[in-house]
Design a protein around this nucleic acid. Structure first.
Lengths: 135, 135
DNA sequence: GTCTCTGCAAAGTGTTTGCATAGGC
DNA sequence: GCCTATGCAAACACTTTGCAGAGAC
């Protein structure tokens, strides 16, 4: 959280209670919430909180490299405070989004680099299937 | 194209000039166009073509398994007449979307299956970087 | 005190829907 | 002739923007 404060200040951005609350949710959950879900969680604590503030804060965090935006194929984005390009797995029944250990794919970027002539900067790997509880 | 006609009919769906034109664009391009782009290409030939028809047709194709929808992280979906779950690579400069040979990742799904306890149904793999022309 | 942030409402963007007419089969 | 598709406009869902007042530093 020290790092969070520093990173924002280094980017000339202010540390507000709203931003702290939003970031706090993101580092303490595994569920990769959308802006709407974050907003719903904050409403009871910050009754005046606005969805626009959630969006603006997430945008700020994204620019500061504090969160990454996930596009799992739903209508809305999801957010992850783990900014590594780690793979995700989405349950097609209950729609939860889990992380997959990055190590499994260690050689993947090298393979793609040598096959394509692109310079890979990042990757987004999504697997879809039934989770243990839903199968 | 025979297959296309048969597949639609098998699903109780009609084969219309608009649908043929949309599908024809998709099988003859490598650029993975969005609905908007498809619409723009068709406008000169079908002046009465409507964006809603493009969306409805793409939806029909998706349900019939004739196209897949790609979510490369832009504001709109892109469409691909190649329905295999093959990986894509997106240039972060010119935003073109290329295919990557599927063979490279043959063992990936098995790995994920054994590590996660999910039953994987499909995957969407996106790599981002600079294409040969843009670097 | 300055300059960014918040929170409201309004606008924007891609997509979907309702419905009357057109057209595939 | 039946029943689905088209095409227009209006609705929708998520996100962004404008702006006046509040608040971080």
């Amino acid at each position: 959280m020290k790092e969070f404060t520093k990173t924002l200040r280094d980017h000339g951005m202010k540390v507000t209670p709203q931003r702290i609350a939003i970031y706090d949710i993101l580092i303490n959950t595994m569920e990769h919430p959308s802006a709407e879900v974050i907003y719903k969680k904050l409403e009871p604590i910050y009754p005046t909180m606005s969805l626009a503030t959630v969006y603006k804060s997430l945008d700020v965090f994204k620019k500061a490299g504090l969160v990454q935006e996930l596009n799992v194929g739903e209508s809305s984005f999801r957010y992850d405070a783990n900014v590594n390009s780690h793979p995700h797995i989405i349950c097609t029944a209950c729609h939860k989004v889990d992380d997959i250990e990055e190590g499994i794919f260690s050689d993947l970027v090298d393979k793609v680099n040598s096959f394509t002539n692109y310079s890979i900067l990042k990757q987004q790997l999504y697997f879809y299937g039934l989770c243990p509880q839903c199968k």
